[in-house]
Computed example of a mutant assay.
Amino acid sequence: MPTLDDDHTGTRIKEQRRLARLSQRELANRIPYSYSLLNQVECGARPASADFVAAVARALRVDVTVLTGQPYVTQLHQDRLADLVRPIREALDLYDLGPDPAVTTRTAGQLIAAADILCGQVRATHLHSAAAALPDAITELTTAAWRAPSTALWQALASTYRTAHDIAVKLGYYDLSSVALDRMDWAAQRASDPCVAAVRQYMRALVYFREGEYSIGRRLIVSGHRVLGQAAETRESLTVAGQLHLGASVIAARAEDETAVATHIAEAKSLARRVGDASDVHWLSFGPTNVAMHRMSAAVEMRHYDDALKLAKKIKPPASMATSRRAHFLIDRARSEMELGHTEASLKSLVAARRAAPEQTRYHPGARETIRGLVHASRRTPEALGGMASWVGM
């Protein structure tokens, strides 16, 4: 069995707790988890789930990334992804400078198509390709939109900002993701597009979901529905409304509000019946299957692992579903299996997630913590598990 490194979430929690001059008992009294679990997480005997980390981060008043250790710089350099972040950051800062006379842009049609391709690459989890092409797309679209403003160009620019957000989140650069969302709002206002604005509120809500600020996340979902009310009832607006309900369901699950979870899932299910598979709308993957996946994710967040696994076994993601969504589902399933002691099944789910979306899985803190839990639980670590642990940098 390999020796686990000492640089893990538990040790970072211990360090931040001590900096806050709190004992384990005092910190445990501030979070909705037991002293025993906190003790086990700090010493590395139990993995730190996302909900646990969010609760501790909120209690200690630090960012979640301080505890997770994101971004995982060593792996990012190994994958040649770290060098792609600064150009994205610089491109995001061009938004209010007007047209750049030194920039030659593609045609409007080509730029709009390029923005859509970038969204597709992220959903296919081709993060390196998307991150490499993104700065030029943002730069060209910024100049094009200033030179000849149009709704379509502002929408495309908002889309590239959304892609910047998605890439930043997946790679663990949450400060950059917040900047990208601000830029998305700036472009959406110029496009006068309530659907894009509502999608942005949905993404903002997920930021607060990760940070454990559930009341703010819920308010952002309400704001998204309010903004969406300015749009006509179309397949697009119904799809965005459904996705807002799905976001609300996992936020409610973290807040342990089972009634709200059931209400939002029911609303999303009703909308999914009306629009069918709407995965082509804003690349949201919305539809009946995604509703089922969120119902399972909500059970995971509420730590109802038996229910989550029963639901997971009924879900058969279609080949047409975005790879990023399928991989996220597999990581959620792996967590449930690990928590229930089904170690072989959990490893199988993680291997499937890696095979489908290697870049996403490698940088997913939930996958990393589940691997840590499996290694600790194994008397004799299988070669495949040891390989997974080494691959994520443990």
Rank of each mutant, 00 (worst) to 15 (best):
E15P: 01
A191D: 00
R162V: 10
F52G: 02
Y305Q: 03
V122S: 06
K314A: 15
A352R: 11
S223R: 06
A102I: 00
T323V: 15
M394D: 12
A114Y: 03
P194L: 00
V375C: 14
S336N: 08
R106E: 15
S390I: 05
M1D: 12
G341N: 12
R218C: 13
E383M: 10
E258S: 12
G217N: 06
T151G: 15
Y208P: 02
L171R: 03
K313C: 15
A168N: 02
Q24P: 11
P32W: 07
D136F: 07
L27D: 03
G247L: 04
A377H: 02
G366P: 07
A377Y: 01
M203P: 03
A384N: 05
I112V: 14
A168V: 02
A188Q: 00
L84A: 01
V41S: 01
T343K: 06
L22I: 09
V207Y: 12
N290S: 14
A187E: 00
L157M: 09
V56T: 00
D7Y: 09
T361V: 14
Y161P: 01
V300H: 03
Q360V: 03
W283L: 03
E369N: 02
L271A: 09
K348I: 08
E15C: 08
M184I: 07
L311I: 15
I138Y: 07
A232I: 12
A197I: 02
A334M: 11
Q78F: 09
I371M: 05
T239Q: 01
A54T: 03
I88G: 01
D96V: 12
I117G: 08
T234D: 07
K310D: 14
Y214L: 13
I112D: 00
N29S: 15
R58S: 04
C43Y: 03
V85F: 03
Q243H: 11
A148L: 13
R333C: 15
G109Y: 02
G393Y: 06
Q75N: 12
N290T: 13
I315H: 06
D7V: 09
H328V: 09
F329N: 05
N39W: 01
D306Y: 11
A298D: 00
E258W: 08
L311H: 05
D280F: 10
S378D: 03
R274H: 13
F209H: 09
R123C: 13
S36P: 00
S36N: 09
V392C: 14
H282Y: 13
D257R: 04
G276P: 08
A322P: 05
A198G: 08
L157N: 00
R80S: 15
R190G: 06
V240I: 10
A248I: 03
A113D: 15
R86E: 14
E26A: 15
S249G: 07
M203K: 10
K314N: 13
L84G: 02
T68R: 00
T139P: 08
P365C: 04
G229M: 10
G109K: 02
E344D: 14
R379D: 15
V300Q: 06
H264K: 05
R254D: 12
G242F: 10
W146K: 07
D116Q: 14
D193T: 05
A367G: 02
R58P: 02
A124G: 10
M321C: 11
S223C: 01
